[in-house]
């Protein structure tokens, strides 16, 4: 708030222009219109970010009697903390599975669905359903589906003559299993984004490519579709990686962090809200925030262009 008021007085000082009464009245009306949003922006975003940064430099614990300033010790501790490093590693593994599968399977589906005329609405709805469904409830369903003895997935595996797979108790399979559920959930979302991108490609480009000798559909994909989808693909990759780094619900339902299956956000939740290590959790949050911000730079530039074109 103060930031904005200061900037405004600077702007008023620069011009020698005197505002007329009517103009000033309009200006106050406009300020009144943005005031609730500005106050909330300060209360929900600006002040908390500053406070968060402050916390991260202390050993503050919610409810503790004394607090010390410990500079960057929390950050040093984080990179020595096996749990945090494990959660970071788990999240990266999760993302490495979810991003390529979530993006390329969705692209494949979109290409198939895009060609359908009458059944398009049906396929769109079918693949989009997991996006709307409450993930916590659906994770519970997956838990049942993947159950080693009574789940139909393992029943099918056994019927095919293989050994049952302990999806949710074998530590090495936990993260890949959760990543598959993540892919299942994000597939429809990405598919719809790709469909929008495909619809935006002008038809005559395909006709031109055909005339230029791109006879096989694969040639047309390489010469027209893939380059024209560039911005969409970049955007889908960015949003998918951001949501991959925010994975939380599946961990909370399926493992509660057991067998070393913590993810970044779950570890953050434990440190900050279960163990009340506020200062330490603040440092972890800042690391999390930096990762998300780096990932969103592409997204912001995209949105920014929309505002200022």
């Amino acid at each position: 708030m103060t930031l904005i008021l200061e900037a405004s007085s600077a702007a008023a000082g620069r011009g020698t222009r005197v505002r007329s009464k009517g103009e000033r009245r309009m200006m106050w009306k406009a300020l009144l219109f943005v005031a609730p949003a500005v106050l909330l922006l300060a209360a929900i975003y600006i002040i908390p970010v500053v406070v968060l940064a402050g916390f991260s430099l202390t050993d503050y614990q919610l409810g503790a009697l004394s607090t010390r300033f410990i500079a960057l010790e929390n950050f040093a501790k984080a990179f020595d903390d096996p749990v945090f490093l494990r959660s970071l590693k788990n999240t990266v593994i999760y993302a490495v599975i979810v991003i390529p599968l979530g993006v390329f399977l969705a692209l494949g589906l979109a290409l198939l669905v895009h060609g359908r005329k009458r059944s398009r609405a049906f396929w769109e709805a079918a693949y989009f359903l997991p996006v709307t469904a409450t993930l916590v409830a659906m994770a519970t369903v997956w838990q049942f589906l993947l159950h080693p003895s009574i789940g139909p997935v393992n029943a099918a595996i056994k019927w095919l003559g293989f050994e049952p797979v302990a999806f949710l108790s074998n530590p090495t399979l936990l993260i890949p299993t959760m990543a598959m559920i993540g892919v299942w959930q994000i597939l429809g979302f990405n598919m719809v984004l790709f469909l929008a991108g495909l619809t935006a490609i002008p038809k005559d480009l395909y006709e031109a490519a055909r005339l230029d000798g791109a006879r096989h559909p694969f040639d047309r994909f390489v010469t027209v579709t893939w380059p024209m989808l560039g911005p969409t693909t970049l955007f889908v990759v960015v949003t998918t990686s951001i949501s991959a780094f925010k994975v939380f619900e599946t961990v909370a339902v399926l493992t509660k962090g057991r067998f070393g299956s913590e993810t970044l956000l779950f570890d953050l939740y434990l440190e900050g809200f279960e163990y009340s290590n506020t200062g330490y959790a603040a440092a972890l949050t800042l690391i999390f925030l930096v990762i998300i911000l780096v990932l969103s730079i592409g997204q912001t530039l995209h949105l920014d262009r929309k505002v200022h074109y």
Binding site: I4, M27, Y45, V49, K246, I292, Q299, L303
Partner: peptide, 29 residues
């Protein structure tokens, strides 16, 4: 409408778009 600080507010809004709620949870809590 025109008001002083319009550009700044727009920039703050776009910056805030990148900040997930999970990053603000601790101080808000």
């Amino acid at each position: 409408l025109n008001f002083p600080g319009r550009k700044l507010l727009l920039t703050l809004v776009i910056a805030a778009l990148c900040v997930p709620i999970q990053a603000l949870a601790l101080p808000l809590f």
